[in-house]
Each structure stands twice: as structure tokens, then as C-alpha cells.
Design a protein around this nucleic acid. Structure first.
Lengths: 125, 125
DNA sequence: GTTGCATAACTAATTTATTCGTTGTATATT
DNA sequence: AATATACAACGAATAAATTAGTTATGCAAC
């Protein structure tokens, strides 16, 4: 699957938030300075061509919605990143950030708790 | 700081691996089909303008080296990602991938071990 | 039904990124 | 010194992404 360009990603972020929306609605959720209506309209049609969104037609107006969830996309995106920067090892990545103190003690404790639960769940099978 | 474009990133990956290198050497580390010498030369000079690399001159030839480490860049890059996709919470991101089973039990156990060490270290202070 | 408005589709213009040919110069080779 | 070689610098050509104007059509208001 392709990666989103910067402009495409901004539109997707709005669509993920809204779940679905008309061009007008998407536009409203942009920060100032807002792009032109047609700019958003074009991008959303490009996203459609690339298979990231689809639409439901109400007469002549289109309500767009994502075909890929934010979670799916982030999963794909992070996989690429982990592959390119941490030789495909999730562990290397997390360890690096833990050591870099980008993760607080509180966060680490929370993560460990969740992982313990997951490990238990996996092993139970 | 700016993000690297696709072509720029490929050159940086080689430079990070080599630590330093002449255009010719960088070129050698590209997979087939290799780009033209001038293509790499141009990209490396763009990277220099953007402040990602610098060079040492030996007479008329230049040996380029990164000004930003792979770790620094990956840190910056992942921060943006975590901010955009996990409302700036590292914990949310890791938890998501743990639950998605993108992280194996073995990896999780390893991560927990490292985190325990880090937590202990932090608390000792 | 004519006018005005809203919207999608199309297209043009602009900007940014990518690729590589050409040129000039220094150095090595003969 | 003439020729060949290697490289950086420059710049042209192309490609990709971004932005927004223009056009066509349908619908609503009058």
C-alpha cells in the first residue's frame, strides 16, 4: 500500500475524526488558513483513486468515508518505520525510547501492566 | 526540523551506515538499479543545504558525513507520528501494538525486563 | 422557466522533488 | 605541455504533489 502525502494525510485525519463527511464538513475542520473548497475536493478524489476513501452519493453530493482505519494505517506506517530504523525489531525501538527517557516511569509501568496481561492471555492459549 | 523526502532518506540511510563517504561510495551502496552519480551528488548537496550533512574537503573531493544521527532523526520522526496518531501518548502506541499482537511474547518479555531496569534506575535517583 | 446557488468534475498553474546531462576545473598520465 | 580522468557545480528536464480557477449540471427560489 502507498503512503499518504502530507496533504492527503491531513484530509484523512479529519475523515478519521468525523467518520464520514461532505467536502464542506471536512473543510470546516481545517485550521486557518483554510484551503479552498476545491483543494479539499481534489484531494479527497485523489484519495478515492488511491483506494483510501469511498463515497456514498446523495443526489449530486458525495459523503466521503475512509476505507482504511487510522489504526490500520498507523500499523502499516509504523511497520515501515521499525523496519527502516530498527531493523524490523519492535523491541529495539521500544527499548531505545525507554532508555532515551522519552517514556516516563508512569508510562512504562502502565505499559508493563498491559504487556503482562497480554503475555498471560497469549500463553493461556 | 524538516522531514526527509524519500530520495533524501535513502541517501541518509547509506550515510548512517557508512558513517561518512564520498559520493562514489554512497552510490556503491545503492541497490540496482543504481541512480546516476549526479543524482546522488545533487541529493547530498541538498541535504547539506538543509543541514542534515556536512563535508570535509580533500582537495577538490568531498567526504560527506551526517550532522544528525539516525537515532536523533528517528526520535524526531516517531514523536511526530505518536503525536499525530496516538495523541502524543507513547503508552497508547505501545499498548495498541501489544494488543494487536504486532509484538511477540518474547519481545514483550524482553521489553518488560528493560523497562524494569529503567524504572529502577529512574527511581533510584 | 429564468436566475442564483451549490457541488462535482475537469483542468490549469504553481510548487516541490527527482533525475541526470553539461560544464569547468583540478589532478594524474603520458 | 597535451590528453585523459574525476569530480563538484550548475542547470535543464521531468515527475509528483499541491492549490485553486473554470465549467457543467442539478436544484431551489422566485
Amino acid at each position: 500500500m502507498r503512503e499518504l502525502t502530507r496533504a492527503e494525510e491531513e484530509v484523512m485525519q479529519v475523515l478519521w475524526k468525523l467518520k464520514k463527511g461532505f467536502v464542506k464538513e471536512i473543510l470546516e475542520h481545517f485550521d486557518e488558513p483554510k484551503p479552498a473548497y476545491n483543494t479539499v475536493s481534489t484531494i479527497v478524489r485523489i484519495l478515492q483513486d488511491k483506494g483510501f476513501v469511498s463515497h456514498k452519493a446523495y443526489g449530486r453530493t458525495h459523503e466521503y468515508f475512509p476505507l482504511i482505519s487510522k489504526n490500520e494505517y498507523s500499523k502499516m506506517h509504523l511497520s515501515t518505520f521499525v523496519n527502516d530504523y530498527f531493523s524490523n525489531s519492535f523491541e529495539k525501538m521500544v527499548s531505545f525510547f525507554a532508555k532515551e527517557k522519552s517514556i516516563s516511569v508512569k508510562e512504562m509501568e502502565e505499559i508493563m501492566k498491559i504487556m503482562e496481561g497480554e503475555v498471560k492471555k497469549q500463553k493461556a492459549k
